Simulated assay, not measured.
Amino acid sequence: MFYYLFFVYFYIKRITELILAHITYCKECKQLNTGYEWCNTCNAKHFQQDFENWTSGNIDIDKCIQNVQLLAKGYHKILEWIPYDKLQDIEYIAKGGFGKVYRAKWVDGYIQSWDCKNKNWKRVRSNMCVAIKSLNNSKNITSEFINEITLHHKIVDNNFFSFIVRIYGITQDPISKNFMMVLDYADYGSLRNYLDKNYNKLNWYIKLNDLYFVAFGIEKIHIKELVHRDLHIGNVIRFPFHSSITDMGLCKPADFDESKSIKNSIYGVLPYIAPEVLRGQNYTKAADIYSFGIIMYEVISGLPPYHDMFGCKSIKSSKCGRN
């Protein structure tokens, strides 16, 4: 009952925000706000006036952040350059195929609105817990890093319950010089970890609710004519009351032709890869749906895919690559 009441509260809160966004006016220009307590026209000017006061040291990163800030129609759509010294109590969590993930406290918290009285940004959730994703060798910035940030941010919705994990900004490790993404921290880790620890306590409402969020996350990706291409239960993370899709590093346009790519490889966790992709065909939206089907099986049964097969441990943990 508490779970149900919690969702009712936040859905009502979200609807209220949407209504207020369209009936409230900017205190500066007196025009309708474009988002909850957000005026795109005025806040774009505030961001632009601050451009000369920060830099990542990389022109492409600066342009990426600045373009996002100028176009943001709500506070959920902001990207920031976050100085590394604003991140404290950094703790290593895990290592993936493309980099490392850490947990840290973000001293400032994120921007929510412009404070007209103090002429500065109003921030909330100071000392909030965030995840930091470091991409290997990103000190020599690559198009892949920019691509992941751009596509990830493009899909994130203006919603408290984002179906895609929210990205707050970019920072840089002063020692390795690798650029890092600062994202929402998932209290329960991956959905797989959550199932391992809590499956016997879960009712059908909770299981279906997790699948609901994953399904709508996939829909958000596909509506933008993109394909995730690496969807598995390790790339679905669990917050206290909802799940979100993460790791958009391999995301590509739906019409992307793999055969024309220099990096003509199959990537992903083997049990989740659609059969046609293993046969050399392109990743498609249908391939994402196949991966979702495997996730559905896991959430419903509580078991990893092909758990009863000989040698399944090496299969489910391996990354598949074919040149």
Rank of each mutant, 00 (worst) to 15 (best):
Y4V: 13
L5D: 14
Y11N: 15
Y11E: 15
K13V: 08
K13S: 12
H22A: 14
Y25H: 11
C26M: 03
E28C: 10
C29Q: 09
C29L: 12
C29K: 10
C29G: 13
K30A: 11
G35V: 11
Y36F: 08
Y36T: 04
N40R: 11
N43A: 04
N43P: 02
H46F: 04
Q49F: 15
D50M: 11
E52D: 15
W54H: 01
G57C: 10
I59D: 11
D60L: 09
D62S: 10
C64M: 14
C64E: 02
I65N: 03
V68H: 04
Q69E: 00
K73W: 04
G74V: 08
Y75S: 02
H76C: 08
I78K: 00
I78W: 07
I82R: 02
P83Q: 07
Y84T: 05
Y92C: 03
A94D: 12
R103L: 08
A104L: 08
K105Y: 07
V107L: 11
G109T: 13
Y110M: 02
I111E: 01
D115S: 07
K119A: 09
N120Y: 03
K122V: 02
K122E: 02
R123L: 08
V124M: 07
S126H: 03
S126A: 08
V130Y: 03
A131G: 09
K133C: 03
S134A: 12
S134T: 11
I141T: 09
S143Y: 04
S143D: 15
S143F: 05
I146S: 02
I146L: 12
I149T: 10
I149D: 09
L151M: 13
I155K: 07
V156N: 00
F160Y: 10
F160N: 00
F160Q: 01
I164K: 01
I167V: 14
G169V: 00
P174E: 03
I175L: 13
S176D: 03
D184W: 00
Y194I: 01
L195S: 04
L195H: 05
N198V: 08
Y199F: 15
N200R: 02
L202A: 14
W204M: 14
Y205F: 15
L208V: 13
L208G: 03
V214W: 04
F216Q: 06
H222S: 03
H222L: 06
H228W: 06
L231V: 07
I237T: 10
F239V: 04
F239H: 09
H242F: 12
H242M: 06
S243H: 04
G249T: 00
G249P: 06
G249W: 05
C251I: 13
K252I: 06
A254L: 04
D255M: 13
F256Y: 15
F256T: 06
E258Y: 15
S259F: 15
Y267V: 15
Y272G: 02
Y272A: 07
P275W: 05
V277T: 09
R279T: 08
G280Y: 02
Q281H: 14
A286R: 13
D288H: 04
I289L: 10
Y290I: 14
I294H: 05
E298V: 04
G302S: 02
P304D: 05
Y306W: 11
D308R: 01
F310R: 09
F310C: 13
K313D: 15
I315A: 14
R322M: 08
